[in-house]
Nucleic acid binder design. Structure first.
Lengths: 161, 161
DNA sequence: CCTATATAGATGCATTTGCATGTATATTTA
DNA sequence: TAAATATACATGCAAATGCATCTATATAGG
């Protein structure tokens, strides 16, 4: 669990959660599932691809002309290597991105968004943005939103994005 | 979107979210994914089946000897009809539950947890419970936990469980 | 009572996902 | 610099999921 650097004996009492903690966990699941399925449904209803496409396109658009390597997408999007590989393949097939051989690294490809891809991302935002507002913004006051943001931050380890 | 009962013209300005709202949404996703994968991993590491099995067994254990119909599980667990059908089938195969023909309804089966199933649920709890504590309880003070619980409640519609 | 419709649950088929492994190139080490 | 190891990405295969549809029984309407 961790590296012991001294002679102390560490004992972990990993105890059971309180009812409040369990309920919070259950509500985290519900809030996520409900919001997520509402958003995916809205995209699907408008004949758009799933959210994962948006995420990838946004990441690529931010990266600009230089594009990104697949392993960079992997880390940015917290996806498995094979998920990135296949998602890139599918999005490329629809010409929303292009894959070029990397000059520095013969193993790798550089992934670059196309104009068509930028356009798709923007059109998806017209659905996605207002839906985020509907499932989060409209249900909380600005102070509550800030508070929720902060509390969720406590649950997340590492880069707090 | 809703039933208009008068002659008024309703205009919806469904606007775009603030940066804070978007960040809250992103953190909801991260908090969920991170916590969930940590918990699923812990179960899998201990050679236990996935969380969905626990949820179903818990629901069945609460229902007692009378058991539950599949459509009741469907609603309780917010699963699709075919998901319940297949999950029940898999859990039955390992004898953690049994299916009996319903007396009142020739179409249906009654799903009842077995002793073996109760035992499994309890053993899973020894992993699951402390993990909930680790991913939620340990990262928040009791007041923060109560606050998070309440804010997530705002995001959830319908039965606030 | 007979017909039409609704509900409970199962399942075939296509798509997606996860795991393990494969191929190719890069880096390290001896 | 040759061999061993690590990294980047692709992919075969099995399991899981989603959708549509099927069967069987129940209920409603004439």
């Amino acid at each position: 669990m961790f590296a012991c650097q001294c002679k102390c004996i560490y004992i972990f009492f990993m105890t059971y959660p309180t009812d409040e903690t369990v309920q919070t966990w259950i509500r985290l699941i519900r809030a996520y599932n409900q919001s997520m399925s509402e958003i995916e449904q809205a995209l699907s209803d408008s004949d758009f691809p799933p959210l994962s496409w948006y995420d990838m396109l946004l990441e690529l658009e931010r990266a600009g002309n230089k594009g990104l390597r697949q392993y960079e997408l992997e880390r940015a999007l917290l996806l498995k290597q094979y998920s990135v590989s296949r998602l890139v393949e599918k999005i490329e097939k629809k010409q929303y991105l292009k894959r070029e051989a990397s000059k520095d690294d013969g193993r790798g490809k550089v992934i670059i968004i196309t104009e068509k891809g930028k356009d798709l991302r923007q059109r998806m935002w017209h659905i996605y943005g207002p839906k985020i507002e509907a499932v989060i913004g409209q249900k909380l006051s600005p102070e509550e939103c800030r508070e929720l943001n902060s509390l969720l931050g406590n649950l997340i380890s590492e880069p707090h994005n």
